[in-house]
Amino acid sequence: MSISGFAGIRPPRDEVLLLGLVDWVPLERVHQAVVDVHPDCPLPRVRQSTLDLIDELTREGLFDIGDLTGENAYFVPWSMSRQESLQRVRTAYIDHFDNPDHWSWFCWLDLTPQGALIAQPIEDRLRRSAEPSG
């Protein structure tokens, strides 16, 4: 179930962007956003869609990939190329999928200022649509 309580209602991209407005987004939440929209999709397609979504979001400069190894478990972007980061995620997620304790929290996504410019209007639209008409 989506943290927002609207599992499967929004595209995974929008869900991850909205989650990014609140906090860093773990790999597990990206995976779950894909599952929520496509619950009957075969696992290999879910995993590829998850990786494709991370690729898209980082290619567009909306998120940085990293982990929580900073002081006080703070986000630290990985100091490697985007392609190397994606390969690192792919290896942990695909090769160790049977061990969710390994891949679920292996990497995190941090919303960039550019990502916030895309995510904020999505949240604003949701807020307006939830307001009682009067």
Rank of each mutant, 00 (worst) to 15 (best):
P44V: 09
P44T: 08
P44D: 04
P44I: 07
R45V: 09
R45P: 02
V46Q: 08
V46K: 06
V46N: 05
V46R: 07
V46F: 07
R47C: 04
R47T: 03
S49F: 07
S49C: 08
S49H: 10
T50M: 00
T50H: 01
T50R: 01
L51P: 03
L51F: 02
D52C: 00
D52H: 02
D52M: 02
D52L: 02
D52G: 07
D52T: 02
I54D: 05
I54K: 04
D55F: 07
D55Q: 11
E56H: 00
E56G: 01
L57P: 01
L57Y: 03
L57T: 04
T58P: 03
T58E: 01
T58R: 03
T58F: 01
R59G: 05
E60P: 03
E60A: 03
L62K: 06
L62T: 02
L62Y: 11
L62W: 14
L62C: 05
F63L: 02
F63C: 03
D64W: 01
D64V: 01
G66V: 04
G66L: 07
G66D: 04
L68F: 03
L68G: 06
T69V: 10
T69L: 12
T69N: 14
T69M: 10
G70K: 10
G70R: 11
G70H: 11
G70P: 15
G70W: 09
N72A: 15
A73S: 13
A73K: 11
Y74A: 13
F75E: 07
F75R: 07
V76R: 08
P77W: 00
P77C: 04
P77A: 11
S79A: 15
S79P: 06
S79F: 10
M80F: 10
M80Q: 10
M80W: 08
M80G: 06
R82N: 11
R82F: 00
R82P: 00
Q83I: 05
Q83H: 03
Q83G: 04
Q83C: 03
E84F: 04
S85I: 12
S85E: 13
L86Q: 03
L86E: 03
Q87A: 11
Q87R: 13
Q87K: 13
R88Q: 10
R88C: 09
R88I: 06
V89N: 08
V89Q: 08
V89F: 06
T91V: 14
T91R: 12
T91D: 15
T91M: 13
A92K: 14
Y93M: 01
Y93D: 00
Y93P: 01
I94L: 14
D95A: 09
D95K: 12
H96R: 15
H96P: 14
H96D: 15
F97I: 08
P100H: 00
P100R: 00
D101E: 14
D101P: 05
D101C: 06
H102T: 13
H102S: 13
H102N: 12
S104F: 07
S104E: 07
W105N: 13
W105A: 09
F106N: 05
C107L: 10
C107A: 15
D110W: 06
D110Y: 09
D110H: 15
D110P: 02
L111N: 06
L111I: 08
T112R: 09
P113F: 02
P113L: 04
P113W: 00
Q114W: 07
G115M: 10
G115D: 12
A116R: 14
A116S: 14
A116Y: 04
L117Y: 10
